[in-house]
Design a protein around this nucleic acid. Structure first.
Length: 614
DNA sequence: TTCAAGACTTGGAATAATTTTT
DNA sequence: AAAAATTATTCCAAGTCTTGAA
């Protein structure tokens, strides 16, 4: 294996803006300024500072590390005496400047990026040129662990070439370190690992790696093996289910716990749930579930709430009605109740289990089988079962086929609990749409009243459309903003121009809202009620359409389809289906996915996700 | 034989690019 | 033509599982 080593992020450039402390401006050293600037760049309503419960931890961790960088005896001691507003306005204005970059400037950045890609983005592996994935060493910054991470806010240090280990083939030439005056930490020749470069990050003391890209043949091969294993599980699943169903009433407590855990992993697609340390966020999976995560309902004998924070602190929250799973379900329920009985709420439900035991058990049934294979298998199986037949897709348009595909994809995403949080902008858009629907309905009622009035010959109280004064004002503001933008030379002028642009856009938005308010009105009162009737029909159709999109958006706002597409669903199921229903693959797999799954593109239309014959 | 370190996959958020709508 | 919406890509944290050291 031959490669160019790693690319490093640019060195920090000092801006010399002071930090206000206890009412006075303080000049910071270059290193301290860099750290302070990271803090100032954080959005106040973001997941770090916007969380009133955990922001104090962030600030405390930040301050501890910040003080270390300031040095002993520095006058800045108390976080609460720091006034960030000055530095913050500097960072926001810097963002504005960046946003106002000209096309030439953008092109320049792009060209630079491409040059780096050309230098570091390729590796020669066994005589083949392969793409490298993350060839740039991670940027320093403030650690942003997810959820209630005890180390959130700590300073993640800049990685120097001396901290890197590089891995090459025996015969490969070792590249020269790209940073003057520095050299590589270590060079090794280990063909048993796939990484090109590694280093240790200072927060969790975890190893980080530069590896080949997803589209490389090496990653492709291991991806193919993963789905091969999942399809092999399909051949064993009947026996495995018989096995754990049988063991639900075993005399051995360990066996009963194993069987119960297996049911949760198989039916609810839980992760196996390894042990976590004190210095990590408190999240769980199957083996680490605690009594407090189950709530036994007082309403129903068989319904139980299961709620916990899983990977990435994503909430799993479902009411499981075990009666829906027949006799097996009731046995599982009895076991769970039994395992929880007499324990404190923070005790483990499955105290006899851990992931290695569970995986060892699985390996004894099928070689190579581990808990995560169940997620891959169930995801792929679900996709295959949920995708509609070619017959049902006949004479549908491509967009409708895509909707059908996404529908199946969504079932998988829900099974795997793949979620996304609704951004403020997204929620705003949703609220706006809701407002729009309400407005359309109000307008329809007014049109109906208008029709009656015209039919009765009483048009005196019928409203007509009039010009919106705001429209002209918005136009004028736009002209002014464009003039500013074109004449802007200094950063200050650029910021002013960007602000002026934002102002006129706001004005135009208001103007559009005003116009929309009277979109249903006529310029002159029509004498023929049929004209009004026609508009009522139009409005009815508009309302129906908007309500449908609102419903769709609202239903899907928290479901992330991408994760299952990238990691869980055998791509050959998708490729074969696309061939059967005559949908171009690029409608469901974007460029990078087609590259990543290039090994799957040639399957025949009748390919099925099945257990191998032998 | 145990268990922590190491290696690799999976994951959502942030950001960039593209498409659709106005 | 520009803004909004949508989709794709990048980033790096956080899981799982295997391996290797004691």
């Amino acid at each position: 294996m031959e490669h160019a080593g790693a690319s490093f992020p640019p060195e920090y450039v000092q801006h010399r803006m002071p930090l206000t402390y206890d009412g006075e401006e303080v000049q910071l050293s270059k290193a301290a300024e860099e750290v302070a600037t990271w803090y100032a760049e954080l959005p106040l309503d973001g997941p770090q500072l916007g969380d009133p419960e955990w922001a104090p931890t962030f600030n405390k961790n930040f301050m501890t590390d910040f003080k270390k960088i300031l040095g002993k005896g520095h006058r800045i001691k108390d976080f609460n005496k720091i006034d960030w507003s000055g530095l913050r306005s500097y960072t926001t204005s810097k963002k504005l400047v960046k946003r106002s970059a000209t096309d030439e400037e953008k092109a320049e950045v792009k060209a630079e990026k491409q040059a780096t890609q050309a230098q570091f983005g390729l590796a020669l592996v066994d005589g083949h040129l392969e793409k490298v994935g993350n060839f740039t060493i991670e940027l320093p910054g403030l650690f942003r662990g997810r959820g209630k991470h005890p180390k959130t806010g700590k300073v993640k240090q800049r990685v120097l070439p001396e901290q890197l280990s590089l891995n090459f083939g025996e015969e490969a030439a070792v590249p020269i370190c790209p940073i003057d005056g520095h050299g590589w930490g270590a060079v090794q020749h280990d063909p048993s690992v796939t990484w090109l470069v590694t280093w240790r990050e200072n927060i969790m003391e975890a190893n980080k790696y530069v590896m080949l890209a997803a589209m490389s043949s090496l990653k492709g091969k291991s991806d193919r093996d993963k789905y091969g294993k999942a399809s092999k599980l399909k051949g064993y699943i009947g026996a495995i289910r018989d096995n754990y169903r049988g063991n639900l009433q075993s005399r051995s407590g360990e066996e009963r716990q194993m069987a119960t855990a297996m049911w949760l992993i198989d039916i609810y697609a839980l992760r196996v749930g390894g042990e976590k340390g004190e210095d990590e966020a408190d999240t769980v999976g199957c083996c680490s579930l605690r009594v407090e995560h189950f709530t036994f309902s007082t309403q129903s004998e068989t319904a139980v709430d299961l709620e916990f924070l899983g990977k990435d602190s994503m909430r799993f929250k479902q009411t499981i009605d075990f009666a829906n799973y027949g006799n097996v379900g009731l046995k599982v329920l009895r076991n769970i109740k039994d395992f929880c009985k007499g324990k404190r709420k923070n005790e483990d439900v499955f105290e006899f289990l851990n992931p290695s035991m569970l995986n060892a058990h699985l390996q004894s049934i099928m070689p190579g089988l581990t808990a995560k294979v169940f997620r891959t298998y169930n995801a792929s199986e679900t996709l295959q079962n949920e995708l509609p037949s070619a017959e049902d897709m006949r004479r549908l348009q491509d967009p409708e086929k895509v909707v059908a595909y996404n529908e199946a994809n969504r079932k998988v995403a829900i099974l795997c609990n793949h979620q996304k949080t609704v951004s403020a902008a997204q929620q705003e858009g949703l609220d706006a749409l809701q407002g729009k629907v309400a407005m359309l309905k109000k307008q329809k009622r007014e049109l109906q009243a208008m029709k009656k009035k015209i039919e009765a010959g009483d048009t005196s109280s019928v409203r007509t459309a009039n010009d919106v004064a705001l429209v002209a004002r918005a136009e004028a503001a736009k002209a002014k903003a464009e003039k500013l933008r074109n004449s802007a030379k200094t950063d200050e002028q650029r910021i002013k121009a960007t602000k002026a642009t934002e102002e006129w856009r706001e004005l135009r938005k208001r103007a559009a809202a005003e116009k929309f308010k009277q979109a249903h009105l006529f310029k002159n009162v029509p004498s023929d009620p049929k004209k009004v009737q026609a508009r009522i029909v139009t409005w009815t159709e508009k309302i129906r359409k908007q309500e449908l999109t609102l419903q769709n958006k609202s239903d899907n706002k928290e479901v992330a389809l991408g994760t299952s597409k990238i990691n869980y669903m055998d791509p050959r199921i998708t490729v074969a289906w696309c061939k059967r229903v005559e949908l171009p693959i690029e409608r469901v797999f974007a460029r990078t996915l087609r590259d990543k799954f290039n090994w799957a593109m040639a399957v025949p239309p009748d390919w099925r996700f099945e257990a191998p014959d032998n």
